[in-house]
Design a protein around this nucleic acid. Structure first.
Lengths: 188, 188
DNA sequence: CACTATACGGAACAATGTTCCGCTTAAGCA
DNA sequence: TGCTTAAGCGGAACATTGTTCCGTATAGTG
């Protein structure tokens, strides 16, 4: 028995359109990058732009909504990796995964650092859910004496994002510059 | 006696307008960032947009023209630093200088990696003149056994640019993430 | 089945990069 | 010095985009 608070039920067509928009956005982002025109997404969803903006106050919110699931999964992976690998390996593996996530989303990296207020929601999403995950990894590796402990997780997260625009190499090996950055972290 | 090849001399007002545009662009870029509207730059120069586009085929060319001097100076600094410092120090100092240059130009870093074809001229300018400078520094430091020698200078240049968007700290100390990257380079 | 709040579509608006073109004027020449 | 003419100019006009607005359609509710 749901509370009697709701004045009305959400319209069925509204829910459908919302789903259609998310699906369309996923498709279009993959095809044309995160900067794809709103009209293109609306068209792909078979919906007017007005409907798009009714469901998402602006592009950034839509982008955020589309990637939330994947970001949450990435965050969750940190704990799993930590449970099944030595701290340093867990950190490396997780960073590689994060790198691949960013590199895979055309234009995400650029959007993240664009400074364009239209994309304000993205950094918040990333730091909010990935920040704690990375912090856990860094703490564990630092406790094991593998890496220095004077690095701000959020800064590192941002930095790795900055370096992750190149398409990932087919063999799955991480971006060489990210590797360099991680080497800088290591205590030798 | 100049050659008789020139069908006509460049008009005096054209040359003046070009100077005015460069000056105006420098001013506006400093005030509003590299993404400032073309109209704003034209207005600041007291000139129509048509004139702007007559002198520069697109925004990127204008941006490139404005920064060429400074970029050339930065490239030249490499040789000087190499002559007056141990290789490793020269490298550090130069990177710091480059970092400050990028960080100082609002939006330059974003423009560089935007992938927007409108800015294609910028990476070419940077890699073209700064690439050789950095190569010389890396070669010297590698020869001295200070750093690994398996790093692509252009990739490193790009990476440092990617990490240099934050405003430089007032004390002139380099970006911590750039520092980390350089630590990764070092042979310990 | 009627009523109404919700949601919709898409025209309209604003900002921006870039192109076009009729008018102006500096250079070259007599 | 005055003419001719091509170089150069200004800014309106066009195309693309993000976002807002509003008259119309309709799902939920009683």
């Amino acid at each position: 028995m749901t509370a009697s608070t709701g004045p009305r039920k959400v319209r069925a067509d509204a829910r459908q359109n919302l789903d259609a928009l998310l699906t369309a956005a996923r498709t279009v982002f993959a095809r044309s990058g995160v900067d794809a025109p709103a009209r293109e997404i609306a068209a792909e969803a078979g919906v007017g732009v007005g409907t798009l903006y009714r469901h998402f106050p602006n592009r950034a919110e839509l982008v955020a909504a589309v990637f939330t699931t994947e970001i949450d999964a990435t965050a969750a992976a940190a704990a799993e990796l930590l449970a099944s690998h030595p701290p340093k390996d867990a950190l490396d593996l997780w960073i590689t995964r994060f790198t691949r996530f960013v590199a895979t989303k055309q234009g995400l990296s650029a959007a993240l650092r664009s400074g364009d207020p239209a994309y304000d929601a993205l950094p918040a999403l990333l730091t909010g859910t990935l920040g704690p995950a990375l912090t856990a990894l860094l703490d564990a590796a630092a406790a094991a004496g593998d890496i220095r402990n004077d690095v701000d997780p959020l800064e590192l997260l941002q930095a790795v994002g900055d370096l992750s625009h190149r398409a990932p190499s087919p063999d799955g090996s991480p971006n060489p510059m990210v590797r360099l950055l991680l080497d800088g972290l290591r205590i030798r």
